[in-house]
Each structure stands twice: as structure tokens, then as C-alpha cells.
Design a protein around this nucleic acid. Structure first.
Lengths: 203, 203
DNA sequence: CACCTATGAATGAATG
DNA sequence: CATTCATTCATAGGTG
């Protein structure tokens, strides 16, 4: 019979790691609950549980994309001038479009919102370009420039956390190197929540 | 010299626990980054753009964003059912929350207004389940599905994970069903296991 | 594969 | 309150 042999030290290390993970998880889960609580009922989230045939797809797309037909239809309505369709209208549109693919009222609603905002902004930008010129030294970021490559990197304070990358492997050595490893004081050393609170102020 | 002896089975259990934790953490961290991204810059100080000194202006916030703590608090109150807090109540809440970051009564007020309106809208949307379309030849999905957000209350069995840990087991399903977390590949996340290698565990 | 843009979605604030 | 607006976030898709 095979057995694995570990020294006290090794076992201790392992134990700590688990403990640390445990704590982190607890806190993260806590945060997750809090932070997503509103998103659940706020978002027009649809849980695409489709694709039961073409593969082990568990997670479907996260964002609706209008099919060409739907888009055409929407554009058509939009061009009819009648601004915001309003709930009743949206229902109609939605059921119409649902014949051409997955869609929800929220999608339609958002589409119109965005469509309008976009076209409006476009005009604003056009007229602003002349006046605003290039003295971007001050404002640097204006409506006309909201396309700048700032992308999804708006987590400036990540460094304050132990986690830099989604690669948990990387995170691990943070854990191991942490002074915490000396003892099992996990409880207080990894309060990500508090940190989150803090780095907000770091600005 | 003392050594601890573990059977393969025991080791395996440990390994799995770590792996599971690792995965959870990975995903939670991911979520954390995502979900707090906004909160951080908001952290409280919006409009730090007024710093006209020669400092490089960090993209300032013009609008308040609740910190996680604040949000939690707000949600809590909101869940207590009492609709829109009275002026007095709002003052209280505001002063409470101001301990967790910049906030004003108006913010609180707006938050409740929006919170209410949006949760209501969601319900309205949810109830729109009856239309003529029942068989979508294209997607084979009933339209009713794309509305229900699949709330966070389901309890799929996690037993197959061999994960007999503390209470976080309960939280597990949060992660597993989250659309955000595309994968939960425990099998490939044995980061800690690598370390185990060093210990001569995986001989 | 990295970067970029277009755009769906989320949400604080404003308006009616 | 109900709706709408404005701004921002995150991601799908295209391109070099």
C-alpha cells in the first residue's frame, strides 16, 4: 500500500494554504453576494441554457447580439422617428423580433437607448470637434474622446491586492510569501473586502 | 523525526480541496476585479479633478459610485422592505455611509429611487411571458427562459466535488452557476499541487 | 495575438 | 414615482 509521507512542516504548509484559501474564499464570496445582489435583478440577464446539442457549452454568450434581421427591423423602427418606443411598443417589437432569434424586452429597450444616445452624441461630437480643437491638456477626456484606449484596465489599485492576474498560480506565491505563513492568522490578513474599501481612496 | 502519513485517499482529498479553493479563488478574484473596478475609482472621491495643481490628472469621477460597503448597507436597508426612506431616514443612512466613503443625501435618495424603479421594471419584464410564439424553430428556446435571471438560490449538488469543507461549500453553487465563470475546471487548477511535488508528495 | 472599435448593458442623475 | 438621459463598463468582432 502506498502512502505519502510529509513532515510536520510540509503538512503545516499545506494546511495553511487551505486555510488561507478558505478565508479568501469566504470573503470573496461575501463580496460577490453583495456586489451581484443588485445585478441580478437589475440586469436583463438571460440565462441562455441553450446549445444542448452542439457541445458541452455551459456558459453561453453573455451579451445579446441582434441578428441581421432584428437589426434591420430595429433600425427601421428607429428611423420612423418615434423616439423611445415605450413599454407597450417594446413588447410588441420584442415579440416580433423573437421570431428572428433570441431577444428580450430589455435588449430592445437598451438598443433604443443606445441607438439614440449614440446618434445624438455623434452630432455633438461633430460640432465639438471644431471648438474643442486639441487643447486636450486639461480635459483630455471629453465626450469626443471617449474612445481612447483605456479599455478594461480600470483597476488601478490591483496592486494593493495580492491578486494581479487571474492566474491563480501567480497568486499563490503571494500567499506563501506573506508573513502570514508564519502562523495561521488568516482571519485578518486577507480581508480583501477591507482592502477594496481602502484602495478606493488611494486615487 | 516525525512524519505524517497519509493514504492516497487522504492526500487526494486534500489535493482536491486545494484545487477547489484555487479555482474558486481564481474566479472570485476575477469577479472581484470586475465588480470593484468601478467602485475603486469611485471609492468616495469623485471630482478630484479639481486638483488644478500640476499633477497628472487621473480620470476623475463625476458621479458617485457606492463602495462595496456602502452598497451592502444600502441593499440591506432596501431589503428591509420599507420603500423609500423618509428624509429623516435618508439623513441617517447618509451619515452612516459617509463613514465608508464620500456620499451625500442626494446619492442615497437617488439610489433608492433607482433601485426601486429598476427592480420594479424587472418584475414587469418577468411577467411578460405570454405571447403567441411558442416554438422558435431557430433557437428552440422558449422565450420565457430568457427573462428569468436564474436567481442565486439554486442548490445544485456539489457532492461530486468531494469537497467536504466548511461552510463555503454552501457558497459553491454561487460560483458554479455564475455565467461569468465559464469554467470550473478543478482538474487543471492544481497549482498547489505543484508545490506538493517539491515535498515529494507526487512521487 | 494584440489592439481597436462598435455596441450591449449597467447605473447615477435628471426630468416630467 | 415613471421615464429618460448621460456616462461608463465590458465584450464581441474585426484588423494588422
Amino acid at each position: 500500500m502506498y502512502v505519502k509521507v510529509m513532515t510536520d512542516e510540509q503538512l503545516e504548509t499545506l494546511r495553511k494554504q487551505i486555510a488561507v484559501y478558505s478565508t479568501i474564499c469566504e470573503q470573496l464570496v461575501e463580496m460577490h453576494k453583495t456586489l451581484t445582489a443588485q445585478q441580478d435583478l437589475a440586469g436583463g440577464m438571460y440565462c441562455d441554457s441553450m446549445i444542448t446539442s452542439s457541445g458541452p457549452r455551459i456558459t453561453a454568450r453573455q451579451r445579446w447580439t441582434p441578428t441581421p434581421s432584428q437589426l434591420q427591423f430595429l433600425e427601421q423602427i428607429f428611423d420612423q422617428g418615434n423616439g423611445t418606443p415605450s413599454k407597450q411598443k417594446i413588447k410588441e417589437i420584442t415579440s416580433q423580433l423573437s421570431q428572428h432569434g433570441q431577444i428580450s424586452e430589455t435588449n430592445v429597450y437598451n438598443w433604443f437607448q443606445n441607438r439614440r444616445a449614440r446618434s445624438k452624441r455623434k452630432q455633438v461630437v461633430e460640432s465639438e470637434v471644431e471648438t474643442e480643437v486639441d487643447s486636450l491638456n486639461e480635459k483630455k477626456i471629453t465626450k469626443s474622446e471617449n474612445f481612447l484606449p483605456q479599455q478594461h484596465n480600470q483597476a488601478p489599485s490591483d496592486d494593493h491586492l495580492c491578486f494581479h492576474s487571474p492566474d491563480i498560480t501567480t497568486d499563490m506565491h503571494y500567499l506563501r510569501e506573506d508573513p502570514l505563513s508564519g502562523k495561521l492568522g488568516v482571519d485578518e490578513s486577507y480581508n480583501l473586502y477591507d482592502q477594496a474599501d481602502d484602495y478606493g481612496m488611494a486615487g
